[in-house]
Write a protein that binds this DNA or RNA. Structure first.
Lengths: 178, 178
DNA sequence: CCGGTCATGTAATACGTTACATGATTCA
DNA sequence: TGAATCATGTAACGTATTACATGACCGG
């Protein structure tokens, strides 16, 4: 019955770190949780309006008279309580869909070369991604935020699974060349 | 504009291996692609009806007179062509949402113990999953299907990323105990 | 004879993206 | 001055799950 309303908690979590506008949250998600969590415009703005109506967040002085003024939101005690209750609950694992694997699973229907090409392109993407992770890791080391250990934890996760996929690519390409 | 209609290709792919009923496909997905691809009833049956109307599949003799008789479908030349065209296209990578990581990212809001608990439970799940993969790998070694190398490839992917996450769990737990 | 699995299918609802609409500000 | 970015918000659409409806068949 009750779906999880995860967007709500992603927004509350972001606002637990500092007051932000919808746009700020969007940008912050793009540069931090991007590889494991994304939200689109069509989700963020309606969800913020709902949180405001529920008094889980408040709106800090936005310029009046302006039609589309920047609105900065701050989490309330009620919002923080809701966030913590959610954080205490066990995360429900969801199984992601992997289109590359689905294509490889049916790979017998096309020439080996096609399957190799898919893996090679995946490999190239992973190399780029790993470089980005390494750069973020380096930048983070100069950060004094109390959130740092948790940010590093999620980043390490990204590095580990990216490296594992790179190892797999190598083995897979070897297997398909025979 | 054009969304991908991935369910269609998952069904066509399954039917490229052998004729099956909707129920068979459901079961086959659950025991093979389960960790990277899932489909629900509400997707499978309407999609099969559409494929039939498009003549991408045909229905092999179902018992008449019966209201809900088992219907076995077979892929047609048209369906096989569509499947191959899709297999030739580059897979579009989608970024999955990981609720565990989202909770850890906001981990500062709750006691360390809570975050450790989430990781410990994830670890237990991964151990079980890895054991299942190892068992399937062993069972597959007696299989003579021409699809075998492709099935092994996707299975290896599962083993690699599961092991990588186990390694990460260990490091994360160490970090959070300090 | 009862519970589990086989088996198909629909309805209600939730989830999420993309495109569109609108317009200000900043910087080269 | 024109492009990029900042900034909010809505509408249309597609995707996907869950619950429900229905009933046969099989093994203990």
């Amino acid at each position: 019955m009750n779906r999880s309303h995860k967007t709500k908690y992603a927004l509350l979590g972001m606002l637990s770190q500092r007051p932000m506008s919808g746009y700020d949250i969007k940008k912050a998600l793009q540069t931090s949780t991007n590889f494991f969590w994304q939200e689109s415009d069509g989700q963020i703005y309606p969800a913020l309006a709902k949180l405001l109506a529920d008094k889980s967040i408040i709106c800090l002085a936005a310029k009046a008279n302006e039609v589309r003024a920047r609105k900065v939101y701050k989490i309330t005690a009620k919002g923080l309580k809701e966030l913590k209750e959610w954080l205490n609950k066990d995360p429900v694992p969801t199984i992601p869909r992997n289109e590359l694997l689905l294509k490889l699973f049916f790979g017998l229907n096309v020439p080996t070369q096609i399957n190799r090409k898919h893996i090679l392109e995946h490999q190239q993407m992973l190399v780029k991604r790993l470089a980005i992770f390494k750069k973020i890791e380096k930048d983070l080391s100069n950060d004094n935020s109390p959130h740092l250990p948790y940010w590093q934890l999620t980043l390490k996760f990204g590095e580990y699974i990216t490296q594992a996929q790179l190892d797999w690519c190598e083995e897979a390409l070897k297997k398909l060349s025979k």
